[in-house]
Write a protein that binds this DNA or RNA. Sequence first.
DNA 1: TTCATTGTAACTCAATTAGTTACAACAAAC
DNA 2: GTTTGTTGTAACTAATTGAGTTACAATGAA
Lengths: 261, 261
Amino acid sequence: MNVEIVDGLRKLGLTEYEARSYTALVGLGEATAREVHETSGVPRTRVYDILKDLTEKGFAEFVQGSPTYYRAIEPERVIERLKDELLEAADRSADELKNLSLDSPGSTPVWCVRNEWGIKNRVKDIMKRADGELLIFCRSPDFLRVHRSDLLSEVKRECNLAIIVDKMAKFEEFGFDLQEIGGGFEEIYKDVMVDGVNYSLECMMIADGKESIVITRIGEERMAVVVKLPVVSALQKGVLEHLVKGGLSGKNSHPRPPTSY
Amino acid sequence: MNVEIVDGLRKLGLTEYEARSYTALVGLGEATAREVHETSGVPRTRVYDILKDLTEKGFAEFVQGSPTYYRAIEPERVIERLKDELLEAADRSADELKNLSLDSPGSTPVWCVRNEWGIKNRVKDIMKRADGELLIFCRSPDFLRVHRSDLLSEVKRECNLAIIVDKMAKFEEFGFDLQEIGGGFEEIYKDVMVDGVNYSLECMMIADGKESIVITRIGEERMAVVVKLPVVSALQKGVLEHLVKGGLSGKNSHPRPPTSY
DNA sequence: TTCATTGTAACTCAATTAGTTACAACAAAC
DNA sequence: GTTTGTTGTAACTAATTGAGTTACAATGAA
């Protein structure tokens, strides 16, 4: 029994038995309950219910008899219909939610995002919004790899893009114009272990000195902290620029690490 | 709490608590767990789990604190993503099912369809497939009303269309060229009660004398019987034509009623 | 009459989600 | 310092749904 199909159909709202019976029917052409049971693995005594409800839902047709025969409605049609129904529900919900939502910007200037998709979106966002200058400090080649195309497509032409990395060697493969951070500052951005969990700064982006995103790896998870507070972002920017230029004239007047939140 | 939205989101795969919390978040802008609880009706002690899993699924972001604040990711984005995921699943399943399905015509020439959508499809089908002649005997103005546009769009230009009705009076509103059936034949097509269930012939269509569909109302349900057996359909056609022309020259040599199956 | 097959009905079991209870940590109010 | 209320966690119960089973009547062929 094809797991892919069954999973797909379940996402579209069928139960496992329904999905398996329907798939079996499609493969069999015309079939009795018994045959559906044999090829789908659905318990024979349940196939009857399931086939009945497939016909009631418009997924199959039948001829009464002994045994009764069943046949699947063409999958293209069935799936087209399911798609339409779902899309309609989606659009209606989207509309109503849009009405509901107040587009007031909200007062809290810092937010955490824990989901991969959400992080990707935020990264794109900040790239898109950068007007004059986008500063990137990156320690993860993977990160650059993933967002390489975004960097090329989302960042405005006139926007000045500076990418700073911790070790040039790790980033050889990239065609971007990179700068290496000054030495002796690993203290500030290096990995830390707290309670057996590893905190690792992956990337930090600052747009126009007023909006920034910091992406850290916490254990196995990734998290992004988005800050839209000019003061903080400008500070982060200042620090970063210092570091690149080669230091804060010695001393141990270390600034707060940019990852603090 | 907006039921529409919640239902829509559930169709897209959220649980009720998730849907309600997310909707509340969208409406609130920035909110604490407590506020979400108050506007969504989700038990306060559960809101914490739910909000956590909303952030993990990429539906919300948060700022740690006491209290922690949450905020919804823009609904357009979220729903767009859900839509994409569903469409992908749908397309993949459709593809694989298409591969699976054997396009052998199958040997059974008669099938029953019990679902409204399925019936509509079959009706369209037969209209589309009629080449030279489409005979329709209709007792239900509703039926004609529903399929009026299909009749105009699906039936081929060169196809000869004949619509026969039981009582002309019921069908006055239609612009079609109708014929009334000869009198004295109600016996053949009239409603029947069996075991307290009403069987009522709604419509019968015969395409090119070799394919036919009979739509009956059984109690509250509707059912279509599709026959692709030339003998039967030709017979049905013969009967129908007789009836229209004004009778079988008396006698009680009644043919089998066309609804027999 | 026997036997296997078809079909119905009613079950049990497991998983998920809805809804509840208890309580620790903390902070503000008295 | 004690009280009170809020925040947050954990673990529970209850309801629902869908998966899987059992028993058995009806049919039909051997």
